[in-house]
Design a protein around this nucleic acid. Structure first.
Length: 273
DNA sequence: AGCTTCGCCTGCTTGC
DNA sequence: TGCAAGCAGGCGAAGC
């Protein structure tokens, strides 16, 4: 299963930027209104706009336009995908909710079985206010992350999932980051703040490695012994409940924090003080 | 304001 | 074998 966290989104952006940049939108249509984020203009407002560039903002995808006209933001949610096809008759495809056809016939399709994703069309000036997405781990500095966690009592696990505080990390990479940084997921944010530089360093490492591996996280169905199957990326703790820690062989535990499944090594990851 | 919980949604896995 | 329940989680809304 693909989990569109930062590495996967980065991969999608890189794949779209080249083919779409400089193209003019001939027609754009969204067939399910409930996929619009609140406050969005109609997707058809992009008709006639030229795509000036495709960028990633946290886990969201931004399509810049020129001359200044409404921009498009696509968030893939959990199961969303953006697919390019080169003209021809559109194949019947299940769960395809939006189609953008470019001059010349190139087509961009939004497919999302679970519909946790969304689209937003609006003027660039409203972007920040509407999306409210904070800096990602490559933009943040350690002192700034420390300031953002300072005084917070919520578990660091929950705070790292807050896209306003730090963007791009999802459930998988937060668990991996905290493991590599030896921080217990239940540590209060204010306590974990002292380890901001370790967390930032490990977040960047795990994300870079995932991007390098094509950004595809294949989550193999866990075998009984927790052994890894064909992972696109080696996961140390996520999805490995009951399996041995790769560092100390202690048994990986799974708990629920903020309604999110959380995996950690009770021996390697401590609460700090 | 900060923190927590819930609802959204479908596909796959598990259990009876 | 077939069906239903359980689970997965990003995000926004709601409640405290």
């Amino acid at each position: 299963m693909r989990m569109p966290e930062l590495p996967e989104v980065e991969n999608v952006v890189r794949g779209l930027a080249g083919p779409l940049s400089g193209r003019t939108v001939a027609s754009a249509r969204l067939s399910r209104r409930d996929l619009y984020r609140t406050g969005s203009l109609s997707l058809s407002r992009l008709n006639g706009s030229k795509i000036a560039g495709v960028e990633r903002i946290g886990k969201a995808i931004l399509f810049r336009t020129s001359p200044p006209s409404p921009v498009l933001v696509v968030h893939l949610g959990m199961t969303g995908n953006l697919l390019l096809s080169d003209g021809g008759r559109p194949l019947r495809r299940q769960h395809r909710h939006a189609v953008m056809t470019m001059d010349g016939g190139l087509r961009l399709e939004y497919v999302d079985p679970r519909r946790f994703g969304f689209l937003w069309v609006g003027v660039a000036d409203d972007l920040g206010r509407s999306l409210n997405i904070g800096p990602d781990p490559f933009q943040l500095t350690a002192p700034e992350l420390g300031r953002r966690l300072a005084g917070r009592k919520a578990p660091v696990k929950s705070l790292l999932l807050d896209q306003r505080l730090i963007s791009g990390l999802g459930n998988i990479y937060v668990d991996e980051t905290l493991f590599r940084a030896s921080i217990h997921p239940l540590s209060p944010g204010g306590v974990a703040a002292a380890s901001a530089s370790e967390m930032l360093r490990e977040a960047r490492r795990v994300l870079r490695r995932a991007i390098r591996h094509g950004g595809t996280t294949i989550r193999d169905f866990r075998k009984a012994d927790g052994s890894a199957g064909a992972f696109g990326q080696r996961l140390a703790v996520y999805g490995r409940e009951g399996a041995p820690c790769p560092l100390c062989r202690a048994v990986i535990r799974r708990i629920v924090i903020g309604a999110r499944s959380t995996h950690f090594c009770p021996n390697c990851q401590r609460m700090g003080r």
